[in-house]
């Protein structure tokens, strides 16, 4: 059983520069073809400040933390037994290339199903830009196969 005293735990925040080369690589890896995800001029013509980070990209910004998936060590979890249960993004602004984003993650809840065979860890990450604006909130649950 995972240690539920960590409900409410707040992780060290980390700050990431959103790089256009990484955005292009991500766009290519998902088969994207819309030029706004590759060319600054196309992005600007479409009304964006710069190449926009695609809708699910905040997850990757969070993954740039110095430690890969820091909840694993905190909760003493085996990476081979985790699954992604669900994922939500709420958008309050747009993240674009050149932005500096601070990610702040916390554990919101932990519970189990199927008599403890599956445990769930619910985490929230807020994404705040260089102007102090909350631009995205992410909520995810990780499923642990016991």
């Amino acid at each position: 059983m995972l240690d539920r005293s960590f409900i409410g735990h707040t992780f060290e925040p980390h700050t990431v520069e959103v790089e256009k080369g990484k955005l292009r690589f991500f766009a290519k890896a998902i088969g994207e073809t819309d030029p706004i995800y590759f060319e600054e001029s196309a992005a600007r013509d479409a009304g964006y400040r710069n190449i926009p980070a695609p809708p699910s990209y905040p997850f990757s910004i969070d993954l740039e933390a110095p430690e890969f998936l820091p909840f694993l060590q905190l909760l003493d979890m085996d990476i081979g037994r985790i699954l992604h249960g669900d994922q939500t993004f709420e958008y309050f602004g747009q993240i674009c290339a050149g932005d500096t984003i601070t990610c702040q993650a916390s554990i919101k809840d932990m519970f189990d199903k199927k008599g403890g065979a599956l445990e769930f860890v619910v985490m929230e990450v807020t994404f705040t830009n260089q102007d102090g604006e909350l631009v995205v909130r992410s909520t995810q649950s990780i499923v642990y196969r016991n």
Binding site: A46, G47, D86, T88, F89, E90
Partner: peptide, 13 residues
Amino acid sequence: QPQSKLRKFSNRF
């Protein structure tokens, strides 16, 4: 629709 119109995006796996 343009990405700037997206307000929320969620799914279960």
